[in-house]
Design a protein around this nucleic acid. Structure first.
Lengths: 177, 177
DNA sequence: TAGAACGTTTAGTTTGAACTAAACAAAGTA
DNA sequence: TACTTTGTTTAGTTCAAACTAAACGTTCTA
């Protein structure tokens, strides 16, 4: 590969790297995706090490996370013990995968936490102590909880759509344009 | 305030804290919003210090960012040199504010970075070197760029909507339910 | 003018996530 | 069996972001 092409590749990888980091993922994760995305052939772990310039361990853990999110796919060759990876090129699908993961993990927990707070207030009230203060708390927490519920449903809906691209999102986009 | 109510408040604050941290903001930022959101009265800087338990400096910088995002609002009282803050309670508006900020800052930069990569490939090609490799690069990078453009437009559209709540998002939500 | 009451800024510290190096496990091959 | 080739795990390190403590600037009051 020519020096110019390598420059393009590195510039691109660095760009993707920054984006993923901005959205709260390790920089190496984005770099890996970038490298795989720009490779016509499936990449092995060692190839990624030399392309991205991080350690074997880092590639191993990051590539596993990428696959869990559905951002890359393992591609095994017969008679070859190496694992090869190719990039998912349907970006809306990738978005869905990421949303699904975030939904499952922490969002849920947040929702529960707010729900618990609400339960605590209600318990205080049923114990007899109803004041302006408890009512205010209950109202505010209820409002936030209902917002989270809406968000939760919205994300669940998006995830459930068969094809996000030709689905709702694109329609909004078109209409508004 | 009763001990039980303080427990509720702290539990709630901790929950909000976790959410904001998960989405890439400082934990103290969420804690501050939680404290203000649960206060019937506007809060001063010193009150926030004692409620949230971080230093004055941290409150100062975090509250400024919250205000910049439109998540809280400054409320000055006449004949009182303190700054007081109240919470924005329209959560969709908050989402818009955050999206607007992210849009402005880093997303733009990401878009530009990918665009630059594309320009670089094209330049190589106009210099005479057209190969399977350059074509592959061009195709891949173009596809990603077009995705980013769509996203960019989508977010811009959402931001531009007067009232997100009664707007598109809610419609999607209703339809799908 | 001095001093108090604010919010801001800065220099230094803390913290936790992500990384490296290296040991390890598994599975094939001579 | 011993050795190679692969991916994984672990113990320790690095580094950037967020924090603290304290100095600072400003504005009001006596």
């Amino acid at each position: 590969m020519s020096r110019e092409m390598e420059e393009v590749r590195d510039h691109f990888i660095q760009g993707i790297s920054r984006i993923t980091h901005f959205w709260g993922f390790p920089k190496a994760m984005g770099a890996l995706y970038g490298a795989i995305y720009l490779s016509p052939e499936p990449l092995s772990l060692d190839e990624m090490v030399s392309l991205v310039g991080v350690s074997k361990g880092a590639v191993s853990t990051n590539i596993r996370n990428l696959e869990r999110l559905g951002v890359v796919h393992k591609k095994i060759k017969v008679g070859d013990r190496k694992d090869y990876y190719i990039a998912e090129t349907d970006f809306w699908k990738i978005v869905k995968g990421v949303l699904r993961e975030r939904e499952k993990n922490e969002f849920d927990l947040a929702l529960r936490s707010v729900g618990e707070s609400l339960d605590m207030v209600k318990e205080i009230e049923t114990a007899g102590t109803v004041s302006e203060e408890t009512l205010f708390y209950q109202q505010r927490i209820t409002e936030l909880k209902s917002f989270f519920d809406s968000l939760d449903n919205l994300v669940a809906t998006l995830i459930a759509l068969d094809d996000l691209r030709s689905g709702v999102i694109k329609n909004i986009f078109k209409k508004q344009k």
